[in-house]
Design a protein around this nucleic acid. Structure first.
Length: 596
DNA sequence: CAGTGAGCGAGCTTCCGCTTGACTT
């Protein structure tokens, strides 16, 4: 007896192969095997059926042949692609290629790659869920229509080679709108006042610093003191004031660890902590996932779980092992009484995989440092710490606020001590001790200095890889496998340029294209377009609606609008001339337009 | 007669999402 099991990733195939033994052949599909053709629309629009024509992707043809050969030799074939919309479609395409009816195909799913989970899944096969496949087809067809009708429109009206799409055009729009906020930004002046205080008898080792916090019982907001004149009045008012502690407030708080990484948060951390681009972070994670020789007898060992995921769930096995690790390394105080789980789902999450975590909690970053290069070590440390911290006790903090009153004014000094490090033991840099000296209620203090400081409000920052991915994810736009490539696409199309600080600045072309799309195709580029699409896809997946009518009701108004704009709108309208500045010689305004 | 240039037509660009190498630079 031989059973062929098909999964999406070759690394996964290798791992599962070990679990299942020699009666099973585990092979991977390398993702999607069929897709719409590249050079034509590949959708029956004239006939009104929207029926797609799929072709085997050229880079997959060799592999598909191999799968066919293996299928011939197998007694049973099990489709074990990911449990999400795309995974279901991959199984459906595979079934088609291997000439198996979807309603007869044996389909299994699992959310964690452990022996137990795989064996359990094999005991409970189902068939291919055609409704879920239809939801994927609707998604695919919609994206093709939008991309392959809107892009040629841009070639005609703006410039050749441009592109538009449900995801990338929104990404570009975000950068354009941010850039305009920056340009329109007018800095505002505001002032703060710091007071330094000393004890009257025995002086403090360091003077006590407190910030002006409230006037006449109303707490001060950031922009309340706008001008130097206001500050001067306050300073004059405080000239011979006496200072007295009127309130001491102690509060103990706890800090819980953040959830384990998913693709988006890993990319954000990689960027924020080490300045890695989204692409770079993913390449490093891929290396750790595929495995590294760490000197043992096992050869290559996969160090982390799958890196393209939107789920914060982790396996029972990890919870047990992490707990044991924490207990052995830090002691009972540092463990959690019951495993900590993170339930909050991100928008549009499909949760086919685990969170990104180390495959073995006992493999500390230090213990394998010798086998990793500098960047791999940094990436692994981020992932390991974040995952282990989730199963450690809360940190406990003591916060103190001291109010020092003089006339109408209250200054506030704050202090913080960490009474129990908990998970922060993994992040020593994050432990802040801000000690206050011994103070008591009604104690009078000497003011040794009043330091007024002028500030100006700052414009919002341009998007980094981290903040752009975050903005897209919050709106449910794009998927774990596309965040990094999307940034690559908008760079390649010259919609954004990377500044020296690695931030993304939109180009003139991006402004022109965004204006064109916002003014004439508002619904497509709307931040909620994807969310609306997802609602429809859910209805299809639940069997409440058929996919073709949904595409049809979208397509006709979209296409008619496109035809209308094609005749109504001239190139000149699209490329509208913009004033860019003033000629220093003549004093006359200078206009810019985009040429061919 | 040879070289030049206008004019015309053909072919190309493009989406999102799932996976890794095989290619260049």
């Amino acid at each position: 007896m031989n059973t062929l099991v098909i999964v999406e990733s070759p690394t996964k195939a290798k791992t599962i192969g070990k679990f299942l033994g020699k009666n099973y052949t585990v092979e991977s599909s390398f993702g999607h095997v069929r897709d719409l053709p590249k050079s034509t629309m590949g959708i029956d629009i004239e006939g009104g059926t929207f029926e797609p024509t799929y072709t085997v992707s050229t880079d997959k043809s060799k592999h598909v042949k191999k799968l066919k050969d293996l299928a011939k030799k197998a007694d049973t074939i099990i489709f074990a692609t990911d449990e999400d919309r795309e995974g279901e479609a991959i199984s459906w395409h595979l079934a088609h290629i291997l000439k198996i009816k979807p309603e007869k195909a044996e389909r299994i799913v699992f959310h964690e790659i452990t022996k137990q989970a795989i064996e359990k899944a094999i005991q409970h096969p189902r068939h291919i869920d055609i409704q879920l496949v239809d939801a994927q087809q609707a998604r695919r067809v919609l994206d093709r229509i939008v991309g392959y009708e809107l892009s040629p429109f841009l070639w005609k009206k703006v410039a050749r080679g441009l592109s538009a799409g449900r995801v990338q055009s929104v990404a570009v729009r975000l950068t354009v709108e941010r850039e305009r906020e920056i340009r329109a930004f007018i800095p505002e002046e505001y002032w703060t006042l710091e007071g330094l205080f000393q004890n009257e008898q025995t002086s403090f080792p360091d003077p006590l610093s407190a910030k002006l916090h409230a006037i006449d019982g109303t707490s001060l907001k950031k922009l309340d003191i706008k001008e130097k004149q206001q500050m001067d009045t306050i300073l004059a008012d405080l000239k011979d004031a006496s200072y007295c502690i009127t309130n001491i407030e102690q509060k103990s708080t706890k800090r819980t660890p953040p959830p384990p990484f998913i693709t988006s948060s890993l990319q954000q951390a990689g960027n924020n902590v080490y300045g890695f681009s989204a692409k770079q972070t993913m390449r490093l994670a891929q290396q750790l996932y595929e495995g590294i020789n760490i000197g043992g007898t096992d050869g290559q060992v996969g160090l982390i779980t799958y890196m393209r995921t939107d789920s914060t769930n982790v396996s029972e096995k990890f919870l047990t092992e992490a707990r044991a690790f924490v207990l052995n390394t830090y002691g009972n105080m540092y463990t959690v009484s019951s495993p900590r789980v993170y339930a909050k789902k991100t928008k549009g999450a499909q949760e086919a995989h685990e969170a990104i975590r180390p495959t073995d909690p006992a493999r500390t970053p230090e213990s394998i440092k010798a086998y990793l290069d500098d960047h791999q070590y940094k990436a692994y440390s981020l992932i390991w710490k974040r995952a282990i911290a989730t199963q450690m006790a809360d940190a406990r903090l003591n916060k103190t606020a001291v109010d020092i009153t003089a006339k109408r004014y209250i200054f506030r000094a704050t202090g913080q001590t960490c009474t129990f490090t908990g998970w922060l033991a993994l992040y020593p840099d994050m432990i802040k001790h801000e000690m206050l000296p011994e103070l008591s209620h009604r104690q009078t203090l000497l003011c040794t200095a009043l330091k007024p400081e002028q500030h100006a409000t700052k414009p919002p920052a341009r998007y980094s890889d981290a903040t752009l991915v975050k903005a897209l994810e919050e709106r449910g736009i794009g998927r774990p496998s596309t965040y990094a490539p999307t940034i690559g696409t908008i760079e390649a199309r010259n919609y954004v340029e990377r500044l020296e600080d690695k931030r993304l600045k939109p180009t003139d072309i991006a402004m022109v294209v965004t204006d064109l799309l916002v003014n004439h195709f508002a619904d497509i580029i709307d931040y909620d377009f994807t969310a609306l699409m997802e609602q429809n896809l859910d209805d299809i997946a639940e069997g409440k609606k058929d996919w073709q009518p949904i595409i049809s009701t979208f397509y006709h108004p979209f296409h008619e609008n496109l035809l209308k704009k094609e005749t109504e709108l001239t190139r000149e309208d699209a490329l509208k001339i913009r004033e860019v500045g003033v000629d220093p010689k003549s004093g006359k305004p200078v206009f810019a337009r985009i040429g061919r």
